[in-house]
Amino acid sequence: MAAEGGNGKGAVGPSGVRTYPDFSAPTVDKVMVEERAASLGKRSIKKEAKVAGLLLSIAMMDLTTLEGKDSPGKVTQLCQKAMRPHASPEVPPCAAICVYPKLVPVAKRALAGSSVKVASVATAFPSGLSALDVKLDDVRRAVAWGADEIDMVIDRGALLAGEKTRIFDEIAATKEACGQAHLKVILETGELGTYDLVREASQIAMLAGADFIKTSTGKVTPAATPAVTLVMLEAIRDFFYATGKRIGMKPAGGIRTAKQALHYLVLVKETLGDAWLTPDLFRLGASTLLNDVLMQLEKERTGAYQSGDYFSKD
């Protein structure tokens, strides 16, 4: 029963009643946020700036495979690709590999000695609809198997039902279960319905101890959009002003082209500044994006448009 209430940060006051921080967040102007997010995608970024942006986006990439058919072979192959995305020496390794818990030991072995981190989804991914004990056990196992980062999902049903304190407690309990591992909190914005709720969920996650907030699981459409990312970035900015703490951001799902990747970098730069333009504070969750970025880099190098036939599939 104790687990049901969570063992989070909701402090127990002198009267024995749990008190929580203020979750309230400013409301979001839907039209303006979509307009601004779109306008930041219209910049023409060419030549050296484009190449620099693309290389940075590779260094920020969480190369992801979250399919039922993931095998040790596929994950090993993906790890090779994360460590050495391309033959040319200026292309950096990716930031992390993102896999299901069972494949963490495989990834850990394949990445031994490299700078690439292992991120694992956990907490009954992708729905999060399990008992808290089960979800925390999922996290502890993933960490024990070697995960450096945990991507948890929140219980969207509970949030939509207004149970904000439950969400807070679950995130806080998960953070505790993570130990040294970094915690990314997936809001699954495609299921939250409004920007206001996205903003509020971001606030709850940051107050409860998230190191990163992340848009989506990749299993729901719409996944990451520039507008929803901008809402979350603004939440991070205001949280920084209020607390001095820098929280990371990870848009994930539906980011497939180099152009989109540059768009997200512009959003971060314009909202949070250069301090956030590092893999420690910004990640792109993607599976097919890397090849498009590599193709664009090759296009810049050779002048010829590239074909996916000449790049490894996974």
């Binding site: 002048g303 010829a304 448009y305 590239q306 074909s307 996916g308 036939d309 000449y310």
Partner: peptide, 8 residues
């Protein structure tokens, strides 16, 4: 020339 160079 662009069509001729295109890898696809």
């Amino acid at each position: 020339p662009h069509l001729a160079k295109h890898m696809e």
